[in-house]
Design a protein around this nucleic acid. Structure first.
Lengths: 232, 232
DNA sequence: AAGCCATAGTGGTCCGACCACTCCGGTCGT
DNA sequence: ACGACCGGAGTGGTCGGACCACTATGGCTT
């Protein structure tokens, strides 16, 4: 007789796959509440400890969300939820991979900015301009960084591809930018950054995708080139 | 007196951050072996159960690797290790997000193919041609899919950006492609796919980046357009 | 010298207990 | 009748200990 459990890998790994399969097959909908840890463990015939490890793993992946005292829920499974872990890559990368990440950002940011130039609405454009103005109105590096992030975030949102926006978000996480830009901006790059942002803005106003693509690529490319010179 | 533990979030979450910080600060090098679960738990003053959840979380993120009976090790922290979770996004996505993922792949694949056209070496080109020939020499859909994947994988590798290659790998995972392409190829798209692959190959041989970019974008775009028509 | 094997050490699993928090329904006061 | 309060039941979070499965090492046998 064939045993009911072929048993490959750890029980926790199997539990992770089981839950992912349930979601993939639609047996668990976004936002839905799961059975309790105790019940889930009993259903899969494993201990609560192992089930907790599986749940924790899916939690850090942005698939599940545990609410203390309430229950475990499936997230909305939106791009932002699932790609939050992308920031981990950016945070743990050093040396050559930082250049690769900036190259990736240059490709995506230029495309997103081009798409935004074609699609952006007056309301979205106003939001972009708000952060552009705030960025130019202060000398506090913290404020500048915050509005700089928001500036590009609004543009990415206007591009209409949530997945791309979520990845760009990860590639622009505070810790990532702080590490790379700290040195860059110390070299008096504020003025250049300001001009580049103005160029991007002009392209958006003109609804000129090609100009927007070029401006965004040049903007990120400047940092990318600088970073290359900083490597051994 | 200020207590030694401000205590924000769960102890497991704090343990995860602590370990990530150790890696970020270089106190843990790639490939290095960590203390035992028991020792780590004692160092951070938490139970072994909680520490195990933290380790499991970092394991699924591709940061750590647990070897039964041997110990816990930091991975090489290469793009492939850290971006393996990207496949989860592709696997759990449905509907509109599948289109967004294909749009993302079109952007990255076209850029990677353009870069490859400029940089590819004779050896790499021979590898690409091997899979191209194998793909055209069989009727087994499984074989075709496998060589199709390898064809694009070799091109992405020749582009020289491991991060981009790792993401493309996630966007082309077997389950993802199987889900999308099942219907697509049923519509007699084999011949069209064959011609598109030939066009990409010609551009690589000619070391013509612009032609390569266009051919790759058209190749992925075909599937993308088909998928759009399949949505409600 | 080569191979084998007992053993210590490690991660993997399970159990049971208790704590912290959320939620809901009943109770009390107004 | 209404609202604020409060208690308990249920849930995830944490802990400690026990045992199992596997690996690696060093001494022992051949």
């Amino acid at each position: 007789m064939d045993e009911p459990a072929p048993q490959k890998g750890t029980v926790t790994q199997r539990a992770i796959e089981r839950i992912k399969a349930m979601i993939r097959e639609g047996r668990l909908e976004p936002g839905q509440r799961l059975p309790t840890e105790r019940d889930l463990a009993a259903q899969l015939g494993i201990s609560r400890s192992s089930m907790r490890e599986a749940i924790r793993a899916l939690t850090v992946l942005g698939v599940l969300e545990a609410r203390h005292g309430s229950g475990i829920y499936v997230t909305q499974l939106e791009a932002g939820d699932l790609l939050e872990t992308f920031g981990v890559v950016a945070d743990l990368s050093r040396g050559q991979r930082l250049v690769e990440l900036l190259e990736l950002r240059r490709i995506l940011e230029s495309t997103a900015t081009a798409l935004a130039a074609a699609r952006i609405t007056p309301d979205q454009l106003a939001e972009v301009e708000k952060h552009l103005a705030a960025m130019n109105a202060t000398d506090d590096p913290e404020q500048i960084l915050a509005h700089d992030l928001a500036f590009h975030r609004e543009i990415a949102a206007a591009a209409g591809n949530d997945t791309m926006a979520a990845i760009l978000e990860g590639l622009s996480s505070r810790t990532f930018r702080a590490r790379v830009w700290r040195g860059y901006q110390e070299e008096g790059a504020f003025e250049r950054t300001r001009r580049e942002h103005a160029a991007i803005h002009r392209a958006l106003v003109a609804h000129d995708p090609e100009a927007a693509r070029a401006a965004a690529a040049a903007h990120v490319g400047e940092v990318e080139e600088w970073l290359r010179t900083q490597l051994p």
